[in-house]
Write a protein that binds this DNA or RNA. Sequence first.
DNA 1: ATATGGTTTAACCAAATGGTTAACAAATGT
DNA 2: ACATTTGTTAACCATTTGGTTAAACCATAT
Lengths: 203, 203
Amino acid sequence: MKKTKDDSTESNILNAAKTIFQRKGMDGARMQEIADEAGINKALLHYYYRSKQLLFEAVFKSVFSLLAPQLNKALNNDDSLMDKIKNFTKNYISFIIKHPYLPSFIINELNRNPEFVQKLITEKHFPNIEKFKNQINENIEKGKITSIKPEQLFINIMALNIFPFIASPLLKGFLKISDEDYNKLLEERATEVSNFIINALKV
Amino acid sequence: MKKTKDDSTESNILNAAKTIFQRKGMDGARMQEIADEAGINKALLHYYYRSKQLLFEAVFKSVFSLLAPQLNKALNNDDSLMDKIKNFTKNYISFIIKHPYLPSFIINELNRNPEFVQKLITEKHFPNIEKFKNQINENIEKGKITSIKPEQLFINIMALNIFPFIASPLLKGFLKISDEDYNKLLEERATEVSNFIINALKV
DNA sequence: ATATGGTTTAACCAAATGGTTAACAAATGT
DNA sequence: ACATTTGTTAACCATTTGGTTAAACCATAT
């Protein structure tokens, strides 16, 4: 009987590998650990994915392609700039709360191997920010928002949304607050961040 | 003859270890690689620092205590809130440009081992943000800035300043720009970020 | 029933890795 | 001068780790 995609050994391995690689990174992850997580023999990992490197790349692409369409949709829909900022912040933060290791995993591994981003760019689902940049410029021309380089605004939005998830241990330390309190702050940010950005854009 | 602190074998090792650990992280770094970087035999690493773990902790503390006083000074001087934000952004960005691996190293390793932050907090040079928080609250009460939780503003400042350095490969990919152009953006941010924040705080 | 093909495992292997040892070298004190 | 401590090295060791192999298992087609 042909197994469904969800319980096939191959996707079982991929899921286990996602868990471990996201938690420990390429260097920290062990093939045995992934096999244990998947409940199978280590040799099966190599049977399906040949090497640690290839398994890792499969994981990375899979994880990245979970994130990319999300971003693309948020940037390229027909909402007004203000709505886009509001929705982006709200959706993104609740998405990341479900996948807490995701941003640091991606950012980390791209730091370890910056050339890899070139391979990703060629893929068709890679986020495209041209429309968003145009929208910003139009709003500036119409005098609706203060003048700002679209690139800088984009960086600011990403930074305000993503950074608190990546740097949580450090920020918890600086703020001297508990995990619960920190999570409350994160939830508040779903609205806090867009208010902050929109205020910053006032003329 | 007693060697000076700078060219002693011990600090030679520490410097080599800083270089390698910051580039590769705890998991990715190899003791042999550190020995090569220091131009000495691998056994000497263990002679001075006993184990990889202890060498790593020495590096981490040393790197962190390069950053902490910087932050402390920026937060606890007698400048007005606005000046503080301006100076912080300007100084911090130029500091990080000199130590590009520093933020991701610290954030990464704290993610790998979140309990470690507790050990750091007890040290006397750990950044204290109480004064800064009070200053924010005073400015809000006097109606000088819009109402915002000091914690959120602090997170925003950190995010806007640090994130672009941590996520540079990803952001370069999204923005589809060269390394040179990205570095120009970073330099612009020394003023861009404080303008953005100050505008966001207008009533 | 049995041959066939893909799937799974236990056992194994070579290289890498953190760490140790024992001997040697260079200061230092007497 | 000589003994003692400190610094340094080459060689070595045990374990870990990614990867392989050969045999067993199991579903399906004939």
